[in-house]
Simulated scan of single mutants.
Amino acid sequence: MIVQQRTWWIIFILGIGQSLADFTVSQQDLTVTVGGQKTFQLYLNEIRPVSEDLVVTFDVQHSDLVRTDPVSITRLNDTQVNEWSITIFGLGAGHSIVSTNVTPVDATDTTEAFVRVTIEKSEALYHVSSVVGWVYFLAWSISFYPQIYSNYKRKSVVGLNFDFLSLNIVGFVMYSLFNCGLFWISSVEQEYFNRYPKGLNPVLVNDIVFSLHAVFATAVTILQCFIYERGTQRVSITARMIHGVFAVLILISIILASVNIITWLDFLYYCSYVKLAITLIKYVPQAFYNYKRKSTIGWSIGNIFLDFTGGMLSMLQMILNAYNYDDWESIFGDPTKFGLGFFSVAFDIFFLIQHYVLYRDRQEYVELPKDYSQSNESQRILTIPGSYQGS
């Protein structure tokens, strides 16, 4: 009997602290063109009957970009109306958040009653940007295979720098950890939304597919290094030291996350920082290796063309979006993504210059033994260091 009384007393206390009702919306993401309009539904879900009048006002983050109609709603306590249509008008390109404020404050919960509004100048530009995005996604995804095919065709990986490969696989593993963790682990995703209550999960399905595919393709290339001729190539001491620094950083981050000093979301961010750092330095070993050999043989130019195409289209999409949403801060305010794309394209141009200008006259030739015959299956194809190959 005493236990039952305590149980009901606890329920009563929790009931006092609980809101009478909560407001929700039909959709939390809305896209409207400048001069256009869209409508969403506002709902009142009564947990217990609300016995007082409610006044709902809409708080617009950027009033020069968005206007609502109506600007406020009064819900009388003797009415049964619990649903309203709210119209959003696009005034200028950009991003805005429409939130709800209710009086009296303690009567309802409006945590989920907000709409992220994207106002675009042109719907056609949105579709062009989408197409550009998928094209560069495909270009970057396919870019791994010319190198794999070249290695298979030559039965050799001489000319492909192992430092570049080792940095590449670590970078894509870190990128995959970030994407998969934030996309599939619900507790990490909740940490993100706790930190950014009105934000969107930045990881999309195509990010997952690209990063995992990149790990697979790079792993296949590394496997070829154990199968085919590789000469005297090894991962350099410098690269091993860099990997050691990254390993210590990740290990410390895992320990800190395990003892709750940092969140697992922070750990994933540290993984992404490692990926960014690797993107900045990974092409340097290959460029220097080509210079030292005075040759690009073994380094597939098809890979460079596709990477160059993907990088250019990636930057084009960022520019299109910046113009369409009047959001140039996404490029100039936080230049990391654009800068990384530009940096990769700059290296691609340098590789093209190496291939077609600096070392274009060096031809690969085959040296055969004197007793060579058509039936001699033990022939060896000897490539002069610093020679040129077209693929």
Rank of each mutant, 00 (worst) to 15 (best):
L276S: 09
E83A: 13
I227Y: 07
E123V: 09
A21G: 15
T57M: 06
P202Y: 14
D266C: 08
S330F: 04
Y289M: 11
D327Q: 05
F12P: 00
Y356K: 00
M174Q: 10
F23W: 14
I278T: 02
L340R: 05
P197D: 08
I148S: 12
I11P: 00
S19Q: 15
G159E: 09
T309R: 03
V56K: 02
A322S: 11
L382E: 07
L138P: 03
V32W: 00
A322T: 05
Y145S: 02
V173H: 06
V135M: 09
I252T: 13
C271F: 11
I353P: 01
T100M: 14
R116W: 08
K294H: 14
F342Y: 09
V115P: 05
I237H: 13
S85C: 03
S387P: 03
L276A: 15
I261A: 05
L382R: 10
I11C: 12
W9G: 04
Y152V: 01
V98Q: 11
I86C: 02
T39F: 01
G15H: 11
E46Y: 01
F172H: 15
I73Q: 08
F267K: 09
V115A: 04
T336G: 06
E112A: 14
D266V: 15
V105E: 15
G244V: 11
K294N: 14
M1L: 11
L368D: 00
T74D: 06
S373I: 00
I208M: 05
F23Q: 10
W84V: 02
S141G: 11
L251M: 11
T68P: 03
V209K: 04
Q4P: 02
F12R: 15
I250S: 01
T296L: 10
Y388D: 00
G339D: 06
V357W: 10
F193I: 05
Q379E: 07
L249T: 14
G159R: 08
F210V: 06
S378H: 11
Y372L: 00
R6K: 15
L125E: 02
V188K: 05
M174I: 05
N303A: 13
I208W: 07
G35A: 03
I242L: 14
Q286V: 03
F343V: 07
R230C: 07
L167S: 12
Y270P: 00
I16L: 12
S150L: 15
R48G: 02
S300A: 15
F210G: 04
G390P: 04
T87L: 08
L65A: 10
F342C: 07
I297R: 14
D69T: 12
